[in-house]
Simulated assay, not measured.
Amino acid sequence: MRNSLLQFIYKLGRLLRDKFHQYNPGLPYLITILVALVIVVLGINLFIELTDTLESDMLNAWDSRVTEFVLSYRNPALTKYFIFVTDVGDVYGYLAILVIATILSYFVFKQWKYVLQIVLVLALASISNVILKRFIDRARPSIEHLVTVETLSYPSGHAMSAMAFYGFLIYLVTRFRMNRFLKALCITALVLFILSIGISRIYLGVHFPSDIAGGFIAGFIWVIFCILLFNVIELFRRDPKT
């Protein structure tokens, strides 16, 4: 599979080089497409490598050490915070953010495409997470759960959705014309929120750290894949003759 993907990138690279002069106005899109392809291939390979080592002693020892470290900080205040964070990283949290994004798209950006793109990224991550959980079939940690869970463990749906949803928001923020300080503040806040959602699942006892790592990797793959897809669409939209 890895060789096939690399071969595809090589052939696409040759095609783009042959068409370079024709697509010169779309050079930023070409660069984004090529970089995204490479990252997707590397991301898929990393996710497969991690999944293959789920039962290894080394990974189990790492999971235990990280979990013990996180649980050692349990206290009432942090518990309330992480329950809030994990709730925001669930269905109702995403619906609230989508409502805000819809309002901004209508009144500020005057475009609906951003909302549609965000919905697509989240839908792909959510659907693929259900499939991966059933295929890999990893049980939840046996430690005390501070929240109720009913699904399987790997990869973490919260981590995967958070990375896909808020990760794509980070991409959109980087493209918007806005004050640099405000942009940096938004990106920092989103990154910290993604990390908080991941840590919350370990803190609440419902995921192994490797579940979170797998979820982050898989969610990041979807972010980059969708960036690739949207840039390809934009490139061909700018030149319908191709």
Rank of each mutant, 00 (worst) to 15 (best):
K19A: 08
T51L: 08
I187T: 01
L34H: 02
L122M: 12
Y154N: 04
V232L: 15
S196Q: 13
S210K: 11
F216P: 00
S56W: 07
Q111A: 04
R138S: 10
D137M: 06
V173R: 07
G89D: 12
I83N: 11
L46K: 14
L182T: 12
T51D: 12
L132M: 12
S64L: 15
D18A: 02
S196R: 01
F84L: 15
S210Y: 06
P28L: 01
L124I: 13
R175N: 03
F181H: 01
R140V: 05
G205V: 07
L104W: 11
A164F: 07
T102E: 07
T51W: 06
I127R: 02
S64F: 08
I170D: 01
Y154R: 02
V119W: 08
R237D: 09
A77Y: 14
F230Q: 00
F181N: 04
F47G: 04
I44N: 14
A101H: 04
I31E: 09
L54I: 09
R74P: 00
V115P: 05
I199G: 05
Y10P: 01
Y73R: 14
S128H: 01
F8D: 00
A101N: 03
L182Q: 11
V119F: 12
R175M: 06
I217P: 05
F193G: 12
L120C: 13
T174I: 03
L37P: 00
I224H: 00
F225I: 08
P28T: 04
A77F: 14
A123N: 03
I48S: 10
V147I: 15
A125Y: 08
V38Y: 12
G43H: 03
T53G: 02
I33Q: 07
T53N: 13
F165M: 05
A162S: 15
T148S: 07
I9L: 11
T79P: 02
A101R: 02
R2K: 06
T67C: 12
Y166A: 09
S72F: 13
G26S: 14
A77G: 03
M163D: 01
S105D: 11
T86N: 10
S56R: 06
K11L: 09
Y10D: 14
H207K: 07
L169M: 13
Y154C: 05
F47P: 10
Y23S: 02
L122E: 11
V223E: 13
M178H: 04
I39V: 14
V232D: 03
V108P: 00
E150K: 15
F216W: 13
I136P: 09
P240T: 11
S142I: 12
L204F: 08
N45K: 10
K241Y: 11
C186N: 00
K11P: 00
